[in-house]
Design a protein around this nucleic acid. Structure first.
Length: 580
DNA sequence: GCCGTTTTCGGCCCGACTGTTTTCAGTCG
């Protein structure tokens, strides 16, 4: 079997691991990791890449290694490393707190290779006898093994948000804090998180430190330094939380630093270095004059380097800094003129139609669509034709009461397992907006799913396909769908695709939205709210959409009411025209 | 190992915390 790109990436990363244990030069190891990363970031397959050395980070040596691997199926460099280093040691690297140097030493001194041998050596107190090791280290290794056995997985954003809020509520009540904010992958809005990070500005660091260490639910103190605290909190599951305590002067740079990503920071620091400057958590230093700069906010920090403010959710692999010129006028929450997917207590929502409308009015929307489930979803008390007509009446009446918001009568129409739609066209045509979605038979083949979606796309009354892949983050992968064909159908039929703002879903993901964006597909950002509180998820949905560098023009619900209705009307009339 | 309108040799992001040391190495983010 000819190795593919993924195999090559794995090979390079594996070699890096072995080199670490061997004690090779850190920069050499870094070079292998960088090469793996460069390959991963490149969209092309191996066959499509003419010259490997054209990629930045791949030189003669690594190119030769890759070519050997492709032609022979194995790598002499890896084989040589494997002769020197027992492969069990690579496994031990996953234990938190244990790095390559420690493992190598334990192997040298005590001949330890496996997890069991390591554990036994700790229990028998043999580790403390090695020079440079002590009792504490022994205990820490045991703890690390315990943690490793528990395998702390990344936790879905939706499960972490309430815990973040819990921490924020406590920080808000705390005395002596100037300001604080969430950082890390939470601030960047990653769909799963390893831990939570908070940056705190204060002139009384000791006082703040003491208060944090008194927080309830602390199960374990990992670090408790003057400026950095890491604690494990115990909720339904264990969550590690980092607190960074800094002076108000340094707060913006610290916030930037701990928002990351790591790659983003590395790129920023490279840029600083080229300007004879050095970025740290505390500020920017001119390495020639010794001048030290702090900033009022992150915007000023970026401006110092001639960059516009790069929103946290965009800070990923560092390329966003170099592509900043291409940064479009990103869609923002202020651009959103309405929410086109929500449920009332007519189906499985908790609030009445008028409560939902009132909540949307307070959000300043120009329009709102009430889209309860259709009859197929019995468990959600889906609406029959009769109930739809009754709700329609209610919506029309309610509409007469308001001059500042347009209430659209809608439905979330189920696409049935057999590929038909849950309601006939005679009722659909009476509605203002129809959202179609799949809630059943997820196991079907990609072809069957596509056939179902196609029926919906081609129906003249279906305006939007909701949560197009059906995933629930960390719980359900979703049905198998051919993304390119999905976008093609959306484009051809003038149907918008939903970016679902529910943090459990966040469906579609940015990688997909990027593809659709190139194809000229229209998106709509909806909360799918089942209560008025969840309407606030719009903020999350918009930020998530921004990860795909989506601009206002690509998002349906940034249009004003007339434009929106015009867009819907065009599909009904069979015209395919884009809006502007 | 890779790279170069400051360099083909000498850099490659930067700092906190811990545990073990008597000034620092290892790990982490």
């Amino acid at each position: 079997m000819v190795p593919n790109k993924k195999d090559v990436i794995r090979l390079l990363e594996k070699i890096a691991l072995y080199m670490e244990l061997k004690g090779d030069h850190p920069f050499k190891i870094q070079a292998f990791r960088k090469a793996a990363k460069v390959l991963e970031m490149d969209d092309r397959s191996l066959e499509e890449i003419d010259q490997l050395t054209e990629l930045p980070g791949i030189g003669k040596g690594i190119a030769m290694l890759i070519n050997e691997f492709i032609t022979t199926g194995h790598s002499s460099i890896l084989e040589k490393l494997q002769e020197e280093i027992p492969k069990e040691l690579v496994y031990l690297l996953q234990i938190p707190g244990l790095g390559a140097k420690t493992i190598a030493k334990l192997h040298q001194e005590l001949g330890i290779q496996t997890l069991d041998e390591l554990k036994r050596a700790c229990v028998e107190g043999r580790i403390r006898k090695i020079k440079g090791f002590g009792e504490k280290t022994e205990r820490n290794i045991l703890q690390g093994i315990e943690q490793f056995n528990k395998k702390t997985f990344r936790i879905p954003l939706a499960q972490m948000l309430p815990i973040a809020k819990w921490v924020e509520d406590r920080l808000s009540d705390m005395k002596g804090i100037e300001t604080f904010f969430r950082a890390g992958s939470l601030r960047r809005l990653k769909e799963t998180l390893k831990d939570l990070d908070f940056v705190i500005a204060t002139n009384h660091p000791k006082y703040v430190r003491e208060q944090i260490l008194q927080f309830p639910n602390i199960k374990d103190r990992i670090n408790a330094g003057d400026s950095k605290i890491t604690c494990k909190f115990s909720f339904d599951f264990d969550v590690s939380v980092d607190f960074r305590i800094v002076s108000p002067d340094s707060y913006p740079t610290t916030l930037h630093h701990f928002t990351g990503s790591k790659d983003h920071n590395v790129r920023m620091r490279q840029i600083a270095k080229a300007r004879k400057e050095k970025i740290s958590e505390y500020g920017v230093e001119n390495t020639e004059t010794g001048d030290f700069f702090t900033f009022r906010n992150e915007k000023d920090f970026f401006a110092h380097f001639g960059l516009p403010f790069i929103p946290p959710e965009l800070r990923e692999d560092g390329s966003e800094i170099d592509k900043v010129e291409e940064l479009p006028d990103l869609v923002s929450e202020g651009d959103i003129k309405g929410d086109l997917h929500m449920h009332s207590n007519w189906s499985d929502g908790v609030h009445t139609v008028s409560e939902m409308v009132e909540a949307c009015r307070r959000r300043g929307y120009s329009y709102v669509a009430i889209t309860d489930h259709s009859q197929f979803l019995k468990i959600a008390n889906g609406l029959t034709k009769d109930r739809i007509r009754r709700q329609l009446e209610l919506v029309r009446k309610l509409n007469d009461q308001y001059s500042d918001i347009t209430i659209l009568a809608g439905i979330e129409l189920d696409i049935l397992p057999d590929g038909s739609l849950d309601l006939d066209e005679d009722i659909l045509q009476e509605l203002d907006v129809v959202i179609a979605s799949i809630h059943s038979a997820f196991h079907q083949s990609e072809r069957q799913i596509l056939k179902r979606l196609k029926t919906a796309f081609e129906n003249p009354y279906v305006n939007i396909i909701a949560h197009p892949t059906g995933r629930i983050i960390g719980r359900r992968k979703g049905y198998s769908v051919d993304i390119e064909k999905l976008f093609q159908l959306a484009k051809e039929t003038n149907t918008a695709l939903e970016i679902n703002a529910n943090p459990k879903r966040l469906d579609l993901k940015p990688e997909y939205v990027k593809i659709g964006k190139e194809m000229g597909v229209k998106f709509v950002i909806n909360t799918d709210a089942h209560s008025k509180e969840s309407l606030a998820n719009m903020e999350i949905g918009v930020k998530f959409a921004r990860k795909a560098w989506l601009n206002k023009q690509m998002v349906l619900n940034t249009m004003d009411t007339d434009q929106l209705l015009h867009f819907f009307k065009q599909k009904k009339e069979g015209k395919s025209d884009s809006f502007t």
